[in-house]
């Protein structure tokens, strides 16, 4: 459990760090996430690669949106909700989080799937089911 939390935390810090270098293309953060995924399989870390990644990405995108929104003045989410057919501001944040989550989750998962490691994979699978 603690390992999973640390793992997600590492991902959160990594994505945030890379994303703060704003001259890079918006999707750059998926590359280290992909590498983490490889490391993930190699190091026999327990945990779901996709859901851990999704959670980390979600936290970063939704969390930063709320942070910047509050920090800068508190208008932008309402404007976005107006532009998105007046959906509720909470849904806007969830949507933003979902995009970050999806990208991160897929990147980590792809990395974790790169190399054949049948036994380990089975082991992981079994571990995931018993967790």
């Amino acid at each position: 459990m603690i390992r999973s939390v640390i793992y997600i935390l590492v991902l959160v810090l990594l994505i945030t760090g890379i994303s703060l270098i704003t001259i890079l293309p918006w999707w750059t953060f998926t590359i280290p996430c992909f590498l983490i995924g490889i490391w993930h399989s190699h190091k026999k870390i327990n945990g779901y690669p996709f859901s851990s990644g999704f959670l980390a990405g979600f936290i970063v995108w939704a969390g930063s949106t709320v942070f910047f929104h509050k920090y800068f003045g508190g208008n932008v989410i309402n404007t976005l909700s107006g532009l998105l057919n007046n959906i509720s501001p909470v849904l806007v944040i969830l949507l933003i989080g979902a995009i970050g989550g999806l990208m991160t989750g897929l990147a980590v998962f792809t990395g974790s799937m790169l190399f054949k490691k049948e036994e380990m994979y089975k082991l992981n699978l079994a571990a995931e089911h018993t967790m």
């Binding site: 994303s19 704003t22 999707w27 910047f68 800068f72 508190g74 976005l80």
Partner: peptide
């Protein structure tokens, strides 16, 4: 997510909290 489609902006950039619409309020 990198390109505008059907009148919807490129969501990956537009909704990215570090460079997208959210940063415009600064």
């Amino acid at each position: 997510f990198s390109r505008a489609l059907f009148g919807i902006p490129a969501l990956g950039r537009f909704l990215n909290p570090f460079i997208g619409a959210v940063q415009c309020e600064k």
